[in-house]
Simulated scan of single mutants.
Amino acid sequence: MSAQNSTGIQTLLDLVNTPLLRAVRTKRVREARDEAKKEIDAYRKAKEEEFKKFEAEHTKGNKQAEDEANKEADGKIKEIQASGKKNQTQVVEDLLKGVLDVKPVPPSAE
């Protein structure tokens, strides 16, 4: 009876390993892989859209803060430029005086 079971099992294994069944299994594996790829692509697309929506909602506040900071910086730059123009002649005169009015001092003996 053991030999008969062994022969039956071998016959089933031979049937399972026929080229036709292997081709069917290969086709099913390819179909499953393609289906999984489609699901992954759909999931990725959904998550990217979700991220873009989140990003759009949360960058509005940053944009406003950035605009305010730029306005403040522009105001400070204009203030510094006005101050520079106001004192420009005095600064140039002081620099020229320091360069042209040389007062040599002998080195001290240490």
Results as ranks from 00 to 15, higher is better:
R33H: 11
T89W: 02
D67F: 02
A42Q: 06
K52F: 07
A46F: 08
K47Y: 07
E55R: 06
S2G: 14
V16N: 12
P104C: 04
K53E: 03
K37Q: 09
H58N: 14
E50S: 13
K97I: 01
Q64M: 08
K86Q: 01
V16Y: 13
Q81N: 14
K85D: 07
V105D: 11
S108M: 07
E49N: 14
S6H: 10
Q88W: 01
K63C: 01
Y43R: 13
V105N: 07
K37W: 07
S6Y: 08
A65T: 04
I40M: 01
R22H: 06
K97P: 00
L20E: 14
V16A: 15
S2Y: 15
A46M: 10
Q4M: 13
N62Q: 06
I9W: 08
L13G: 03
K103E: 08
I80R: 09
K45G: 05
I40T: 03
E79F: 01
A56G: 01
R33D: 12
A32H: 07
D101L: 02
R44F: 10
K47R: 15
R44I: 13
V92K: 00
F54H: 09
A23Y: 05
E79Q: 13
E55D: 11
S2Q: 15
Q88Y: 02
G8L: 14
E68G: 04
Q10Y: 04
E72P: 01
A65H: 09
L12A: 06
D34F: 10
A32M: 11
T11N: 12
N70Q: 07
E93R: 02
E35D: 14
V16Q: 12
V24A: 15
V24Q: 15
K76T: 06
T26I: 04
Y43G: 05
K47F: 07
A69C: 06
I80M: 08
K71H: 04
G75Q: 13
E35G: 15
G61A: 12
E93Q: 09
V92Y: 02
F54Y: 11
K37G: 05
S83M: 08
D101S: 04
K27M: 05
V92P: 03
S83C: 04
Q10T: 09
S108Q: 12
L20N: 11
K45H: 09
P106T: 01
A23P: 03
Q88R: 00
V102F: 07
E79P: 00
D14N: 15
V91Y: 03
P106N: 02
E110L: 10
I9M: 11
D67E: 11
D94N: 03
A36N: 00
N70V: 12
L13K: 13
N62V: 06
A32K: 05
K47H: 02
L21I: 15
